[in-house]
Design a binder for these strands. Structure first.
Length: 306
DNA sequence: TTGTGTTTTATTGCCTCC
DNA sequence: GGAGGCAATAAAACACAA
């Protein structure tokens, strides 16, 4: 045997099987598995016990425990059918289960004591613990899987929710942009913009008198009203002259079109699934409104980028 | 009764530790 | 090098539907 492990091989067990003619009586060592047979599997022994919670002691493991007539015959005749695999009795299993709950490892002394109390071979006890550990490990893995699955499902639901919110905000921004264009202040077809600092349409054209406030006024009003110095910045301003004051986006009917920071800023932080859910990078696949301030002073501006 | 799937007991081979 | 653990596996025992 590999490893030189001292074991009782099956061949040995089967070679020492007793026969009913008593021929091998002299060399047969009574195997406890023939004495303490049980037909109860681990899955149903509790029900068969009726939920018995009594602590079984050695007195439980007497000959005649949970046996049928055939087994009694085997027992009384002191033979075991060749190749038959005997199951432990319910009480033996229960005892082993309780022992396993206390400690799932077996020290030699404990193994010997359990074997003695249960009337089993020490090796049977060791094998039972080994198989029990394997079953425990399998169950634990199933639990871990379920737990991880639940965690994943929760995160995915959260991610989906965020992406939907991202899309909603994106459409909201798109509609606001369209609204701006439709006012005539930004004339996309001519690629000109009457608004100062509109990065959607490039450098501002010559302004008509009274159509737009001065950039300095933009800065002052926007900073105090809509933006603050702690606004998230996605692009550093390269040109302080560029800046469109949200307050100046007054549409023709005189109503003020305010684009608040709370509406626009979060867009830049929504994740992109295809980008590997990297929240540290702004998504760049959709029109976004970016904020920036001049390097020398907090001159707010916003621009549209694609 | 029988076929089939599951559970339990046990073996085998390999690995690690002392 | 022996002892013990583990993974893979065999095989008996068992459960259950058809």
């Amino acid at each position: 045997m590999a490893g030189g492990k001292a074991r009782t091989p099956a061949s040995k067990s089967k070679a020492s099987v007793k026969t009913d003619n008593g021929l091998l009586d002299s060399i047969w060592v009574p195997d406890s598995s023939t004495i303490f047979d049980g037909s109860n599997s681990m899955s149903d022994f509790e029900s068969k016990l009726g939920g018995a919670s009594t602590t079984p002691g050695p007195a439980f493991f007497q000959a005649g425990d949970v046996r049928n007539a055939e087994e009694d015959l085997e027992l009384d005749g002191c033979f075991q059918l060749p190749g038959k695999k005997r199951r432990l009795s319910a009480h033996q299993v229960q005892f082993l289960e309780r022992s396993f709950e206390v400690e799932n490892r077996l020290e030699p002394e404990r193994k010997a004591q359990l074997a003695k109390e249960l009337g089993l071979q020490p090796r049977q006890v060791a094998i039972w613990f080994q198989n029990r550990r394997a079953r425990f490990k399998t169950k634990q893995m199933e639990k871990d899987y379920d737990s991880l699955r639940a965690c994943y499902d929760s995160l995915k639901a959260n991610c989906d929710s965020l992406l939907k919110e991202k899309e909603r905000l994106k459409h909201e921004v798109d509609s606001l942009k369209d609204k701006l264009l439709s006012t005539g202040e930004c004339k996309e077809e001519e690629n000109t913009c009457l608004k100062s600092g509109c990065q959607l349409h490039g450098e501002p054209q010559e302004l008509n008198a009274g159509e737009a406030p001065k950039p300095q006024e933009d800065a002052a009003s926007a900073k105090s009203d809509v933006f603050d110095s702690e606004s998230p910045r996605l692009t550093e301003p390269g040109n302080s002259s560029q800046g469109l004051d949200p307050e100046s986006s007054e549409i023709e009917d005189g109503s003020s079109l305010m684009i608040s920071k709370s509406l626009l800023a979060p867009l830049s932080y929504f994740p992109k699934i295809e980008d590997g859910y990297n929240c540290s990078e702004p998504a760049m696949d959709y029109p976004s409104c970016t904020f920036g301030f001049s390097s020398s002073e907090d001159h707010p501006f916003w621009n549209w980028t694609y």
